[in-house]
């Protein structure tokens, strides 16, 4: 499912950030990484842009760009658990 398709008030976990170049990098740098929890907290009255809550900060991006973020909605029950951290092991780095 894409971030742009999330209903207002739902939380989701980012699974992949597609797209290319500097904008994708900017999204990553703002903390939208695989494993990060995001919530759509609002949509502008004219339908665009979206307002997200990421890592305790509000961030607005347009639908077109939000479409490049792949997410899985988090069920209300599991939402109480702590957000999964970015998977270091997958990168093969040493702690």
């Amino acid at each position: 499912m894409r971030l742009a398709e999330l209903a207002v008030g739902t939380e989701a976990s980012v699974t992949a950030v597609s797209g290319t170049g500097s904008f994708r990098r900017r999204l990553l740098e703002l903390g939208i990484l695989p494993g990060t929890r995001v919530e759509v907290i609002g949509v502008a009255p004219l339908g665009d842009p979206l307002e997200l809550l990421v890592r305790g900060s509000s961030l607005s991006i347009r639908r077109a760009e939000a479409a490049s973020v792949e997410v899985t909605p988090i069920e209300a029950a599991s939402a109480a658990e702590t957000a999964p951290l970015f998977d270091e092991a997958r990168l093969g780095g040493e702690p």
């Binding site: 950030v17 994708r24 990098r25 990553l28 740098e29 903390g31 990484l33 695989p34 702590t82 951290l85 970015f86 270091e88 990168l91 780095g93």
Partner: peptide, 18 residues
């Protein structure tokens, strides 16, 4: 590459922030 770099930095932050 972008994910490797940005992800490693955030991993550092996420590990210590709580």
């Amino acid at each position: 590459l972008d994910l490797e770099i940005v992800g490693s930095r955030y991993a550092f932050v996420d590990r210590h922030l709580p």
